[in-house]
Nucleic acid binder design. Structure first.
Length: 805
RNA sequence: GCCGCUGUGGCGGAAUUGGCAGACGCAGAGGACUUAAAAUCCUCCGGUAGCAAUACUGUAUCGGUUCAAGUCCGAUCAGCGGCACCA
């Protein structure tokens, strides 16, 4: 057995593909297209992670298979290059982030090419390229013009020492990742995008797409639609206090109210509140917590009663106390709730702690022990005109009543919040707006796009929390496009999500100077037929890009409501210790070394063979050796005796291998479509074992085997294909299977007695049921004597089960 | 606390979706080749009992449905990931 020289073979074919532009694709309107997409990477300083090749190889296999099936395949690649790590590296090392990005991209490109992905490199894009972000800015302007971008006061993480706004990621246990100082929540005016306006459509159109159920569920839960009612309580201060509830039926059971610490009434009622200072203290304390900390279930409920103002329940005119507590969030509903401790777990806990009355309004539970929250079985009690009704009926009745009395109205709420689109950072797309004293916020003319990111001395945000751009007078000061007067530019930049929300459109027409892509090309290539990415992007990137696509559909840029027909997700590659790979754990694997020691084909094969594609899988050095061993066996196929019959037709496999070949072709073809790469490879391994067992091979067998393996291991198969005189593999078609030839003439039948295997029997495929049963009984012989047969089950071509007493 | 996912040999994982559990690979043991080693090839490889044929047992735990359960249902335990107490 000889090892093959993977280094020179892989280099040879990578050069060949590059020189011949093998995978460059052009719009061919006569040919059926197939658009395969992988999430473009963030080019970090660490280089390609060993996890990256897993999804890239999987989709490369699909792309190569589709080409062999005759499709016009678009499989593009690019760089999602704006972002914090690059900026932080630039700050630390005083290198321009554009330079850092260019270096990282160069390294990533070298590594990606060494793995032999069949990307169309002529369509490479980079979100930090002004020719690209010109169109990111253009889309933002359209959103702005349609009223979908607005400014809002938002709480941000503020490092008290660095005096900068921090991303959630930079806050570790409530303190700054860099200086470990305290981080507080501070209010800042931010650009927001009204994704909530698309909430219902983002739910509804999920029925049109082929996503894994867990992805759909995550998105639906994230958007979090709930139906209920808004109800107006009056306060003893004379104002109306509006609340949202999903359980209007329990209105008679409301024994107190809770408002969020940020609720504006706290200030409005300042004069009436005898314990105002105590309330203010509570408000300050809760400002230090994140929403997550505030809403943690395990934590003890906290709160302060408002002394001096009460609320009045509109259905029974009862006066009830008002509390302020941080478990109520200003960002959901109206920032105020009615508390029904008898039928809400959180309210129940709060009421127990503060000794508040608990009234049962739905019978069926024991409210002394816990809140009774079941909506299906209870009957209304202690609820005036609702008594005796089911919960569902009561909901309808009370909502009608409230509407009629003008005390409230039905309401649908979504958990989904609008998208915070501003960053007080340098390394992002500048927001192309100016602020004019007279005209307000004004879009810059589209002819002035791209609004270039200017050079700055330091990338550090300013100590007022503004972006580094705020320190550049030349950049800030401009004229108003509307009135011509003096105006100031927006200095915030866009989040990294912006560029990735539409990149799949740019791949269709990456050099277009007059549009983000031409309508003709968009209509040819879109939709993305198959999009693979990580589960971690399910609720942010995937939702954001669907939102932008729907907006572009609304303004006539794209022709479909949804961008992606099919979405799949891969599992992470873990370290050999089953832990997430990280520098601190010391379990990081460098792909360069793997390629050097085993070759790209072995790396590709191993990452596909290691386990279920959708689940996490650990790296294993011995595992990759096994894959390399398999490739050596493939290489040595050509050293077997060739028993050539001179034919290259499908039916020229030798008789003893014919059925195996057809079965393997069927299995590999099926498995690739269903992300079962591991079992596809296993079946190829079984087939090669069978070939070796015969000690020989013929041309048709070698040719089919190489074609089947090619999507997984493109270099070695191209080389062997050429050496065998079959031509260039990439220009061929995938072998086909014949269903009739996949079947064996005979099958083994399991004979069970009471579910236990007692005999085995070989019968012709498709053998008659009674015939099988007779032969099964013969096989069992005396074992059935003196037993009463209760039941006889025959599963054709599989098993016989005889139940006896 | 809530949501989602996952529990199968020494290890990674298969199992046509209810029909012989452990495919394929790794590791291990024995043998062949070799002066020797590596590589390669052949054989064995869940547990218990047995020289063996074989029998019993076995898919996190407990229970259920079924002729038949890794697979379906109910409860429990453990691990991983996500989270915005969503009223």
């Amino acid at each position: 057995m000889k090892e093959y020289n993977y280094t020179s073979i892989e280099k040879k074919w990578q050069d060949y593909w590059e020189k011949n532009e093998t995978f460059k694709v052009v719009e061919n309107f006569d040919k059926e297209k197939f658009y395969v997409l992988v999430e473009f990477p963030y080019p970090s300083g660490q280089g390609l992670h060993i996890g990256h090749p897993r999804p890239y190889t999987a989709m490369d296999i699909l792309a190569r298979k589709r080409r062999l099936e005759g499709y016009n395949v678009l499989y593009p690649f690019g760089w999602d290059a704006f972002g914090l790590p690059t900026e932080n590296f630039a700050i630390k090392n005083k290198i321009h982030p554009a330079k850092v990005t260019a270096d990282n991209v160069k390294n990533f490109t070298r590594q990606a090419k060494a793995i032999g992905f069949s990307f169309d490199w002529s369509r490479e894009i980079n979100t930090t390229d002004p020719e690209y972000y010109k169109w990111t800015q253009w889309i933002f302007l359209q959103l702005f013009k349609k009223g979908l971008a607005y400014k809002k006061e938002m709480a941000v993480n503020w490092c008290t020492d660095c005096k900068v706004v921090l991303a959630n990621e930079e806050v570790v246990d409530g303190s700054c990742e860099r200086c470990h100082s305290e981080v507080v929540r501070r209010v800042k005016s931010q650009w927001m995008l009204k994704i909530t306006e698309y909430a219902q459509r983002l739910i509804d159109d999920l029925t049109e797409v082929d996503y894994p159920e867990r992805v759909k569920t995550s998105q639906i839960n994230w958007i979090g639609r709930s139906t209920g009612a808004e109800v107006d309580f009056t306060s003893t201060a004379g104002d109306i206090l509006r609340i949202f509830t999903t359980r209007p039926d329990t209105l008679f059971g409301a024994t107190y109210m809770v408002i969020s610490p940020e609720h504006p009434y706290i200030d409005a009622w300042k004069e009436r509140l005898s314990n105002y200072s105590e309330i203010l203290e509570y408000k300050t304390a809760s400002a230090k917590k994140s929403d997550f900390e505030r809403t943690e279930m395990v934590k003890e409920k906290t709160g302060v009663k408002l002394d001096g103002v009460c609320a009045v329940n509109p259905v029974n005119n009862t006066e009830i106390p008002i509390f302020v507590s941080d478990y109520v969030l200003m960002s959901y509903g109206t920032g105020a709730i009615m508390a029904v401790p008898g039928h809400d777990t959180r309210d129940w806990e709060f009421a127990k702690k503060f000794n508040l009355p608990i009234i049962e309004v739905v019978s069926g539970g024991d409210i002394e022990k816990e809140a009774f929250t079941d909506c299906d079985s209870g009957i209304m009690v202690n609820s005036g005109f609702l008594d005796g009704m089911s919960v569902d009926d009561a909901k309808v009745k009370i909502t009608e009543y409230l509407s009629k009395q003008k005390l409230g109205e039905p309401k649908i709420n979504y958990k989904l919040r609008d998208w915070v689109f501003s960053r007080q950072r340098y390394w992002g797309e500048p927001i192309p707006l100016v602020h004019c004293e007279k005209c307000g916020w004004v879009a810059i003319p589209e002819s002035q796009l791209p609004l270039m990111l200017p050079e700055v001395e330091t990338y550090m945000p300013t100590d007022t929390g503004e972006s580094p751009l705020a320190a550049l007078d030349d950049f800030i000061n401009t004229t108003c496009p509307e009135c011509g007067g003096a105006a100031k530019r927006e200095t915030d930049t866009m989040p990294q999500w912006a560029g990735s929300s539409w990149y799949f459109l740019r791949y269709c027409d990456p050099y277009n100077k007059t549009a983000l892509a031409s309508k003709e090309k968009l209509d040819y290539w879109m939709n993305v037929d198959w999009y693979n990415g990580g589960m971690e992007h399910t609720t942010l990137h995937l939702l954001y890009s669907r939102f932008w696509h729907k907006f572009l559909y609304d303004i006539g840029i794209v022709s479909s409501k949804e961008p992606y027909n099919k979405r799949t997700s891969h599992g992470m590659i873990l370290g050999e210790d089953m832990q997430k790979m990280s520098k601190s754990r010391g379990n990081v694997i460098n792909p360069d070394e793997i390629i050097r020691d085993y070759g790209a084909d072995a790396l590709r094969l191993y990452e596909m063979f290691v386990g279920d594609f959708e689940k996490v899988a650990p790296w294993s050095m011995t595992g990759i050796k096994g894959c390399k061993r398999f490739l050596d066996r493939v290489w040595n196929l050509c050293r077997l005796t060739t028993v050539d019959n001179g034919q290259l037709t499908v039916d020229s496999y030798r008789k003893e291998l014919c059925s195996s070949f057809h079965k393997t072709i069927k299995k590999v073809t099926y498995d690739i479509e269903h992300l079962k790469f591991n079992t596809a490879i296993a079946s190829l391994m079984s087939l090669i074992n069978e070939i070796y067992a015969t000690g020989a091979i013929n041309n048709a067998e070698l040719r089919s085997f190489l074609l089947l393996l090619n999507p997984f291991a493109p270099h070695i198969t191209e080389e062997m294909f050429e050496a065998a005189g079959f031509g260039i593999l990439n220009e061929q078609s995938l072998p086909k299977y014949d269903e009739a030839l996949c079947k064996d003439d005979e099958v083994e039948i399991v004979v069970q007695v009471c579910g236990k295997v007692r005999a085995k029997l070989v019968v012709p495929t498709g053998c008659d049921k009674t015939e099988v049963l007779t032969r099964a009984k013969e096989a069992l012989g005396a074992a059935l004597d003196s037993k009463t047969i209760v039941k006889e089950i025959v599963v054709p071509d599989k098993l016989v089960n005889i139940v006896v007493r």
